[in-house]
């Protein structure tokens, strides 16, 4: 597609917010790994775009036990973080794609993309985003409830408490480009509580609260794994059937918890 959409190139977060939220609302171009091909193939219309590559929004910093990741941080950089975020980022695409795709772009991409929503949900990550009404903070679900990614909205950064331990396992073909059919992220916080989230077990990333409750009540990994099915709403897609997802979710929950050292 050779649309003549103008692209502005802000050189700071503030400029980026101003550019995205100005009328007409702009589409955010970060790594471009989804937007550019869609644009080439005429699957998306872009009136105006804002490229984040020079907005200095790709920092990753840690302070007071909290990690803050700029929305434009490439997955290759995120892959160097501890599990579950690092392991999940490492699982997306090949090295060339990882070098280009950003964590913010991933979060904003619809299923079956958007793997990073799983670990971030388990971590209880706080997203910070801007829209014409100002700057907002909230969890993954809050961001989605606000309408999620769309022209005029700019995800700024993602922050989470560095967990005591984290783990990530994925159901995917051992295949470089295969999309992940299902993944389980588990986190043990400083308080010792374990939180678990999955992608691919339901139409969008979800917490596995029943499994968490079993663990909190002193149950075993196996009991927690079995309980996880109650939180699933599996579906058929090109990657796996609903029946298979339901069947192996406990296996992957079990493996994530084993890895966590529960």
């Amino acid at each position: 597609m050779t649309s003549t959409a103008a692209v502005s190139m802000p050189s700071s977060e503030a400029e980026a917010v101003a550019a995205v939220t100005a009328q007409p609302f702009a589409t955010v171009l970060a790594g471009g790994t989804l937007l550019v091909p869609q644009h080439t193939l005429g699957q998306v219309e872009v009136e105006r775009a804002v490229w984040l590559g020079r907005a200095e929004m790709d920092g990753i910093s840690r302070s007071n036990g909290r990690m803050t990741v700029g929305a434009a941080a490439p997955l290759a950089a995120c892959a160097r973080l501890d599990a579950p975020v690092g392991a999940c980022a490492a699982d997306v695409g090949d090295n060339e794609v990882k070098a280009q795709a950003t964590i913010g772009g991933n979060i904003c991409s619809p299923a079956p993309y958007g793997d990073m929503r799983g670990p971030l949900l388990a971590l209880g990550a706080v997203l910070r985003w801007a829209d014409p009404d100002g700057t907002h903070t909230g969890g993954i679900a809050d961001f989605a409830a606000s309408g999620g990614a769309r022209p005029g909205v700019l995800l700024l950064d993602i922050a989470f408490a560095v967990p005591e331990a984290g783990s990530f396992v994925a159901l995917r073909r051992h295949h470089t480009q295969s999309l992940t059919a299902m993944s389980v992220s588990a986190v043990r916080g400083a308080d010792g509580n374990v939180t678990i989230a999955a992608t691919g077990a339901a139409p969008d990333a979800c917490r596995l609260l029943s499994a968490e409750a079993v663990l909190a009540g002193g149950g075993s990994i196996a009991e927690a794994a079995d309980a996880s099915v109650a939180d699933a709403d599996p579906y058929d897609d090109v990657l796996a059937s609903a029946a298979y997802r339901r069947r192996v979710l406990p296996v992957y929950v079990g493996r994530a918890l084993e890895q966590l050292g529960e």
Partner: peptide, 10 residues
């Protein structure tokens, strides 16, 4: 870099 994923402005 994958040139198909890269907007030329970038």
């Amino acid at each position: 870099r994958r040139s198909c994923l890269t907007a030329v402005c970038a």
